[in-house]
Simulated scan of single mutants.
Amino acid sequence: MMINHTRILLPLSLIFFGVTSCSQKKLDNAFEGKIKRETIAFTTKVAGRILKIYVKEGDLVKRGDTLAMLNLPEVTAKVAQAHGVVKAASAQNTMADNGATQNQLKQIQAKYKATSEQFAFAQKSFRRASAMYADSMMAPQAYDEAFAKYQGAKAQLEATTAELNEAKKGPRFETKEAAKGQQQQAEGVLQEAEVAYSERYIIATNDMAVETITLHEGELATPGYAIFSGYIPSSTWFRFTVPESQISQIKKGLNVTVKVPYNQETFEGKVSIIKQMPKYADITTAYPDYKMDEAVYEIKVVPEDIKKSELLLFNAAVLLPRTAVTSK
């Protein structure tokens, strides 16, 4: 059987024309917008596996509530290492403050006594050698050997004397400062490790209505990845975009009436912000409703009844009738 395509295409074209006309008529009578809320997301600063999630989607959490706990074995190991470094640095600093121990002083004093005896013996031997050498009773080689032993014993005595004086006086100021600096550095490493370990708990920094939880228990959470996201309570507002040619109808502080099509409710509100959208949003092609090269502006309308607006569906369409704009 032959089908007359002309008879079918004609009604379809009429229907399309009618839909386009209705949409165009709605755009001519009102500015179209969306219901918005301020969003927030919580992430982790360190990588770890999720051990426990304490909230579920739809919950209203308060600032300071614990959202989840992570397992951080690498950070735990770093904390243990940092504790060991702090103990070692602290011991070095204490040793620098206290100086030599009693046993060390006894060892240095015994060493000083021994080198003093060696120097006294070398000095006597050199005097005898000098007298014999003056009487031509000693060869020059033997005299030089006696002189060298005398000089060596003298140098050892001077070194031991300086070591004993330093032990009695205590370590230098620079040595104490270096030991103190090493201890402070070790304590900083420990503090850094402990801060990282405290990140095993994901804490809410703001009140939030949890909308999405992207990970489950046992999954790996990476730094910067949003695990919990949702809306800040009492932050509902209406967003409209208006072309440059029509922005003169709207002023900041203007009281307007916004209509919500899906439930046929109306809301009184006030225009709080008018700002130009980024350059890429400008109209640069031929549209039937906008002129060429028109800037596009974002309009923020804050509802007066915040509690009532909290019941609205996020991102649903809203209308700002032009009569409501021009009449107020």
Rank of each mutant, 00 (worst) to 15 (best):
A186R: 05
V302W: 02
Y280H: 15
Q151A: 11
I299T: 11
E304D: 15
V260Q: 09
A204F: 00
S21K: 04
I15V: 14
E219I: 01
A134Y: 04
A131W: 01
T44W: 00
F240N: 09
F240S: 10
I40W: 10
R128S: 09
S248G: 10
R127D: 13
G224A: 10
P11K: 00
R63C: 09
D293P: 03
M208R: 03
G48I: 03
S327P: 00
N103M: 07
A295R: 14
A89M: 03
T160D: 14
V271K: 00
P303Q: 04
A221E: 02
D282A: 14
F126D: 00
E199C: 10
A204L: 01
R7V: 14
I250S: 07
A134S: 13
L70P: 06
A134L: 03
L220H: 07
L157K: 14
K25S: 13
L51H: 06
Y133M: 14
Y150P: 01
F314M: 06
P278V: 09
T160V: 08
A47T: 14
S245I: 07
K34A: 14
T94Y: 06
L10G: 03
I227D: 04
A96W: 02
L320A: 03
Y287K: 13
L157H: 09
Y143H: 09
Y143W: 12
G218Y: 05
V46A: 05
T175F: 00
